[in-house]
């Protein structure tokens, strides 16, 4: 542990603990997942950064959305995201969740992921190399430090709008709303 950070540990231990033990949901949402196994195994070793995959979303705090998101996957992504306990952070890999990438004219992939769930950071590239993933994670640390990784708070406050967007694309969702939905202002 870095000795200079000792002060931070005393001032805000909870935040530091969130920062250095990011538990990742094990969900292969797209082709970006091909660089996740190298990053969590011996050569690149993501555990240096406190990143470790866990079995269920109930134990996780980081959701890596790896690559393009098709409509069928979007449904399970929303369910998985809503199951995660707060605080939770989302990072997307690759160009496709940013603006559709090379699937800009595909009828079955969504183009802007941040319209459906909040995204804290986006790592560009196709595929992002393992180094890029680690740079993205260290940026996420900075954001957590400055209270800027507030996607889950935005999800709570704008839940009606998010849910409306999700239902617009996927049709009526079969599970009940996570937060109360306000009527039309």
């Amino acid at each position: 542990m870095d000795r200079n950070q000792l002060k931070k540990w005393f001032q805000n231990p909870v935040k530091m603990a969130h920062k250095y033990s990011l538990h990742v949901v094990y969900f292969c949402t797209g082709c970006g997942i091909i660089e996740i196994p190298p990053s969590i195994t011996a050569r690149w070793d993501a555990e240096r950064f406190g990143i470790i995959p866990v079995a269920t979303p109930r134990q996780a705090s980081l959701f890596i959305i790896a690559g393009y998101v098709s409509l069928k996957t979007l449904r399970s992504i929303i369910r998985t995201y809503e199951q995660m306990p707060e605080p939770k952070f989302t990072v997307s890999l690759g160009s496709c969740p940013i603006n559709g990438g090379m699937y800009y004219d595909s009828y079955n992939t969504i183009k802007h992921l941040e319209k459906y769930i909040p995204v804290d950071g986006m790592i560009a590239g196709c595929m992002p190399r393992p180094e890029a993933i680690f740079v993205g994670v260290t940026h996420l640390w900075t954001l957590i430090d400055k209270d800027m990784a507030d996607g889950y708070k935005r999800y709570r406050s704008n839940y009606s709008a998010y849910r409306a967007n999700q239902e617009k694309i996927l049709g009526k969702l079969e599970w009940p709303p996570l937060f109360p939905i306000h009527g039309e202002e």
Partner: peptide
Amino acid sequence: FDTKQYVDDVFGSVPSVE
């Protein structure tokens, strides 16, 4: 079936949240 037209109609009409 025109994919580009379909994408513009369906995905282009989803508003930004924030």
